[in-house]
């Protein structure tokens, strides 16, 4: 029972962070149509910026105030320059998707290697709220709870933004059918860049949250991108609630496999991915 609780609650806690990473990727791929393989690298960069700031004595949750807008702007500009350029030059959406993904590979190499050049490739860690609290027979770290609460809070705020503001509605319209949304007077290039920027911001914040719970390294990004890919496939592309639920499910699965056999956790996610693509490629919340 204690074991079950450990895995279940532990999974939900890490799942919250996964949800946040996945929401970002879901926006970037589901709406802006860029499969950003460098998504995990943005997250890693966010984690290292946080690490650097806290080593200067800043409370590690404070950097999100800087990271979120900064990463948003970087993402926005990247989309307006690189990806819009590719979009304009592509004869059809299929070509844009392929070329966009390949350009994102380029981005992946650039971001990762800048990080390696600055911070090297050894793991870093620090202690923050490293006390434990008990739920029934199980113990959990406070920092994980804080991180999960933070992730859920941001996810919720964003969901409200999508459903109740004008820009949010424009984004949802673009997710359904960007060509038609364009005809309806939505400035489509702006909205897509907005989504890419939001995606990058979420990755950055997720980086902060990862950083306060786990050791970080400059090569950790790709693993999170793979997990996020599985989650958005599970949850349905472009679906925010889907990403959220998918994140929690994968969080539990990951924690369970990680407990039993740490080396196979990502492999297990991949197996889920295979089964999903074969059985229900639209995802659980897909239309």
């Amino acid at each position: 029972m204690a074991l079950f609780l450990n895995i279940f609650i532990g999974g939900l806690l890490i799942g919250g962070i996964y949800s946040l990473v996945s929401m970002g990727l879901s926006l970037q791929y589901g709406v802006a149509r860029v499969f950003n393989i460098a998504h995990g690298e943005f997250m890693m960069f966010g984690a290292f910026v946080t690490y650097w700031l806290q080593s200067l004595g800043v409370n590690p949750l404070i950097p999100t105030i800087v990271i979120a807008p900064l990463f948003f702007v970087v993402g926005f500009i990247l989309y307006r320059t690189v990806f819009t350029g590719i979009r304009v030059r592509s004869p059809n959406p299929g070509v844009f998707e392929s070329n966009g993904m390949l350009a994102a590979f380029g981005l992946y190499f650039i971001v990762q290697n800048i990080a390696v050049l600055i911070w090297g490739s050894t793991p870093y860690a620090f202690a923050y709220l490293n006390t434990s609290f008990g739920i029934g027979p199980s113990d959990f770290r406070v920092n994980r709870l804080v991180a999960a609460a933070f992730a859920v809070g941001i996810g919720l705020i964003f969901y409200l933004f999508l459903t109740s503001t004008r820009s949010g509605k424009a984004i949802r319209a673009a997710a359904q059918d960007s060509a038609t949304a364009g005809l309806m007077g939505v400035d489509i290039n702006f909205v897509l860049a907005l989504c890419f920027g939001f995606g990058a911001a979420m990755a950055g914040i997720a980086g902060t949250l990862i950083c306060i719970c786990y050791p970080i390294s400059t090569t950790m990004g790709l693993q999170y991108t793979v997990i996020a890919t599985v989650i958005i496939t599970l949850g349905g592309l472009g679906s925010i609630p889907g990403s959220f639920i998918g994140g929690l499910i994968i969080g539990i699965v990951y924690t369970a496999v990680n407990y039993w056999q740490p080396g196979l956790a990502v492999a297990a996610c991949y197996v889920i991915f295979i089964i999903l693509l074969l059985v229900r490629p639209k995802g659980i919340m897909g239309r």
Binding site: L102, G106, F109
Partner: peptide, 15 residues
């Protein structure tokens, strides 16, 4: 540095 160049050239080529 090779990987950095690799990434930059990839993007430039596509564009």
């Amino acid at each position: 540095y090779y990987m950095l160049i690799f990434g930059s050239i990839l993007i430039a080529t596509i564009l």
